[in-house]
C-alpha cells in the first residue's frame, strides 16, 4: 500500500517491527553488517578522490538510513552526515546507538521529499538498499539528484533483476541462509543497472563507477567485484 509519499506502508511496518535488531550483528541484519565493509570501502575511495575540502565540510545525507550502519563509520571518520528514514522506530534505534557510541549524528524521521522542500542541498547522498523498497524508484532517484550541490555524488546500491538474484538473493538468502528476513525482497522491485543509468541520463547524470558485491564461498566473506548479477553498488555524477 502506498501513501502520499514515495513510500510503501507495508515495507515501513515490516522494517519497523524488526528495528530493535538493527545492531544485532548475528541477527536479522547480519548480512548487511558484513557487506558494510566493502560498501564503505567503495564509498570512501570515491569520497577521497572527489573532494579535497575538510571532511567536516562534506555534507552527506543517508536516505533510508535504518539503524545507522552507514552513518556511524562516516561520522567516525569526520564527515558530517544526517540520516533520514520513514520508520520512526528505526530512527530512534539509530539515535540511541549513536549516543551509546559517543557519536554525534543527526537522525530525523522524514521523507526525502520533505528534505527537498526545505531547499537543503548536500555534497553526497546515499540510496543504499532502498530503491527496491519504494513504489517509484525513478522519482526517488530524480528527487535525490535535485538535493545535490554542484559536483555532488549520488551513491546507490540494490539488487539486479537476474535469475541469479532471484535464486540467490531471495530464495537462498531468505529461506536457507536466513541472511535476510523472509519477504524482505520482491523480485519485480529489483533494478537492472541499465534502468538506473536511464533514470540518471534523464537528468544529465551518469554512473561513473559500479561494482558488484559478491560473496566468496571459499573465503566466506563479501568483497567488491566485477560481477553485477546480484548485489551491486555504484556512484553517479553530473555529466560534463
Amino acid at each position: 500500500m502506498e501513501n502520499a509519499y514515495n513510500q510503501d506502508v507495508d515495507e515501513i511496518k515490516k522494517f519497523s517491527d524488526i528495528s530493535d535488531q538493527w545492531w544485532d550483528e548475528k541477527g536479522t541484519f547480519k548480512a548487511l553488517h558484513w557487506i558494510t565493509i566493502p560498501r564503505v570501502q567503495f564509498i570512501i575511495d570515491h569520497l577521497k578522490e572527489s573532494f579535497s575540502k575538510k571532511l567536516k565540510n562534506i555534507q552527506c545525507l543517508d536516505v533510508g538510513c535504518g539503524g545507522g550502519l552507514l552513518c556511524e563509520p562516516l561520522s567516525r571518520l569526520g564527515y558530517t552526515i544526517k540520516g533520514i528514514d520513514a520508520s520512526a522506530k528505526a530512527i530512534s534505534v539509530a539515535a540511541q546507538h549513536a549516543t551509546d557510541m559517543e557519536l554525534s549524528i543527526e537522525y530525523i524521521n522524514q521523507d526525502l521529499s520533505d528534505f527537498k522542500v526545505n531547499g537543503s542541498k548536500v555534497d553526497v547522498l546515499f540510496l543504499l538498499e532502498l530503491l527496491e523498497h519504494v513504489p517509484n524508484p525513478r522519482s526517488l532517484v530524480h528527487d535525490a539528484l535535485e538535493c545535490l550541490k554542484p559536483g555532488g555524488l549520488l551513491f546507490f546500491s540494490t539488487l539486479n533483476r537476474t535469475w541469479k538474484s532471484y535464486v540467490l538473493g531471495i530464495k537462498v538468502a531468505e529461506n536457507i541462509l536466513k541472511w535476510a528476513p523472509k519477504g524482505a525482497h520482491s523480485y519485480e522491485k529489483f533494478l537492472k543497472p541499465s534502468e538506473l543509468q536511464g533514470y540518471f541520463e534523464e537528468k544529465n547524470f551518469s554512473i561513473i563507477d559500479i561494482k558488484g558485491l559478491t560473496f566468496n564461498i571459499l573465503k566466506g566473506d563479501w568483497s567488491l567485484s566485477d560481477d553485477l548479477t546480484i548485489n551491486y553498488i555504484g556512484v553517479a555524477k553530473k555529466t560534463g
Partner: peptide
C-alpha cells in the same frame, strides 16, 4: 580503521 568501522564489532573480529 581507515573505513571508520567499529574495531570492536563482532563483524570485524569475525572477519
Amino acid at each position: 580503521a581507515q573505513l571508520g568501522l567499529d574495531l570492536g564489532s563482532k563483524t570485524i573480529l569475525a572477519a
